[in-house]
Design a protein around this nucleic acid. Structure first.
Lengths: 163, 163
DNA sequence: CTAGGGCCTATAGTCAGCTCTAGGTCAAGC
DNA sequence: GCTTGACCTAGAGCTGACTATAGGCCCTAG
C-alpha cells in the first residue's frame, strides 16, 4: 500500500475555479491497475452512481480519472471488501455529492457499517474456532497412527468446548 | 448457543446394525428452526449433496433428521457463514461419506479454508480501521461546531496513518 | 367433510455483482 | 494504408445461493 487512501468531504472542482493544479490524469486502465477493480467494474460503478461525480472525459471521450477519483474508489473498494452493498455505497456517495451539511447522515451510515463489520469479524472468529478445532482433531487422529484412529465409524466427539 | 455442534467422522448407521438408540427424530421444520436455515434451503442442500447421506424418510415420505444430521448441518452453517462455497462443502461431505482413510484430504481442505478465513478477518480488520478513522473524522467535524467544519469543499485529509 | 397445517416434488424466478459480447472510434506505429 | 491497442456504448449473460410457485398428499381438528 504505497499511496494513502483518503477522501472525506466533497470532490474538488466544485470550489472556486479549479486552479491549474497539476493533477495526475489517469486512464481507466491505469485506475483498474491501481484499484484492483476491472475496467468493466469501473464503468459499472460509474453507471450505478457510486462515483460522487461522473468521471471527466478527454477530448476523445475517454474517461480521465483524477487523484480524488482514485482515492474515492479506493474507499469504495474497502467498503465493498467489508461487505457494504453497492446500494449503501451509492447512498454514501449521494451524501457526499450533496455537499457539507449532512455529516450526521454520513456518520449514521458509517456507524451502521462499522457494527456490521464488527459482527462479521466476531462471526468469522467463531467459525475459525470450529475449523481450528477440527483441524486439531484430524491432526491428532494422524499423530496416533493409522491403526489408532477412531476405529468405530461412529465418532462424533469433536466438539469445541463452548463456542 | 445451547447445543454443542459436533460431527467429525462418519455418520452412524454404517456401523453394525444401528442399535435402537433412542435418537431424536426431527422434522424439516424443526431442523429449520434450530439451524436457522429455511426449509427450502434444507431441501436444496440435500439435493446438492451436502448432507453426507440423504436424509431418512418416515412412512409418509417426510424427512426425518437425526441428531447427527443436525450436527452436520450446524457445521455446514458455520462453514457457509465463513464463506466456504457450497461446492467445497460438498467436497468435504464427499470425503466424510467415503469413510475413514482420507483424513489428509480433509485436513487439506480445512486448512485451506482456515487460511481463507484468517485472511478475511485480516482484511475486515483493515477495513474497520478505515471506517473507524472516518467516523472519528466526522465526529471531530461535529465537535468543532457547524461553523468550524472544514469550510472549503476541498477537504481530503482523512487518511489513516498507514493501513 | 372440509379446512388447515406441514410436508412432498419439480421447476421457475430472483438478486447482487459483476463479466462478456458486439460493434464502433481514435491515435500511434510499421 | 493497415493493424494494433486502448478506449467507447448498450445490452445480454453468468454465477452462487437461495427463494418462490404450482400442484399434490396426508393427517388432525372442528
Amino acid at each position: 500500500m504505497p499511496e494513502a487512501a483518503a477522501v472525506s468531504g466533497t470532490p474538488p472542482g466544485a470550489g472556486p475555479g479549479t486552479p491549474a493544479e497539476q493533477e495526475l490524469r489517469l486512464s481507466i486502465g491505469q485506475v483498474a491497475g491501481r484499484t484492483g477493480l476491472s475496467i468493466h467494474a469501473l464503468r459499472f460503478y460509474e453507471r450505478e452512481g457510486l462515483l460522487v461525480t461522473p468521471v471527466h472525459r478527454g477530448t476523445d471521450g475517454h474517461r480521465v480519472y483524477t487523484e480524488w477519483d482514485l482515492e474515492w474508489l479506493e474507499v469504495c473498494v474497502r467498503l465493498r471488501a467489508s461487505g457494504m452493498p453497492l446500494t449503501a455505497i451509492r447512498r454514501y456517495a449521494d451524501l457526499v455529492r450533496q455537499g457539507t451539511g449532512n455529516e450526521e447522515d454520513r456518520l449514521t451510515l458509517l456507524r451502521q457499517h462499522q457494527q456490521h463489520v464488527t459482527a462479521q469479524i466476531a462471526a468469522l472468529t467463531e467459525c475459525l474456532d470450529l475449523i481450528t478445532f477440527k483441524i486439531r482433531f484430524y491432526e491428532e487422529c494422524r499423530a496416533q497412527g493409522p491403526a489408532q484412529g477412531p476405529a468405530d465409524p461412529l465418532l462424533t466427539p469433536a466438539v469445541p468446548p463452548q463456542s
